[in-house]
Nucleic acid binder design. Structure first.
Lengths: 116, 116
DNA sequence: CTAAATCGTTACGGGACCGTATCATTCAAT
DNA sequence: ATTGAATGATACGGTCCCGTAACGATTTAG
């Protein structure tokens, strides 16, 4: 079933989650980075630079740079595709899985606290 | 009443909203910037640099820089406090109000599309 | 009236990101 | 074998942001 949100609830939910992330010193990911990270963890693999770039309607260097940064944070991994060695397959990491899982828990918790 | 979200719904909602923002070329705000913007528009004024800094548990320059950037985007405004001219009062703008309102609509729309 | 405290901004060196253009590597087709 | 296309990374100049420290302006305290 679909989730029905009123405007004040939708915005308050986003604010509470964002505030929680900032207050707790989580990585200050941009909307782009977050969309890439969540796509990697939610959509079925394989994920490639070109695929993500066209999915998000951005250039390839944007994806490469985001992967550089999130790779340094160990949120995602990169490995060559043995079948076609031009491709880079983007994968999940333990750290990234924990981050995403925890993030989902924060959303759920803040949604539960929303006033009527 | 509280909103009950399952983990897959919570994460999928965030992904869909983030993807929508990126695809449509909206400003690529960081989590910090978003939390500041939403706090200005959702919490009762007055808002000051020091108040936001302590609310978010970050340093004052972080707030100043975020206000610089979002001010250039005309999402927020700054004016001196006549009562105490050390203070800067942070206010809303027409552009910012439209942005926030539209963002809320995106959240609501994506929540409505969530699979059960 | 002077000294301390407060507020927001700026300075600094360093890192991350931008868009565009170009690159090396790899594969596919002739 | 050679050409062409495709993939991801890199180079470039420029902008934004970081954390720390200092700063000017203003208010408050003694």
């Amino acid at each position: 079933m679909a989730i029905a949100l009123r405007p004040s609830q939708a915005l308050r939910l986003w604010q509470q989650v964002a505030l929680h992330e900032v207050e707790n010193g989580m990585p200050d990911l941009s909307t782009r980075q977050l969309s890439i990270l969540l796509t990697i963890y939610l959509d079925p693999p394989p994920h490639t630079v070109r695929g993500l770039a066209s999915r998000l309607n951005v250039s390839k260097p944007v994806i490469t740079r985001a992967l550089d940064t999130m790779g340094a944070l160990e949120l995602v991994s990169r490995r060559r595709d043995d079948a076609d060695r031009r491709n880079v397959l983007i994968g999940r990491t333990v750290t990234g899985a924990l981050f995403v899982e925890r993030f989902g828990d924060v959303v759920i918790a803040k949604a539960k606290e929303l006033p009527t």
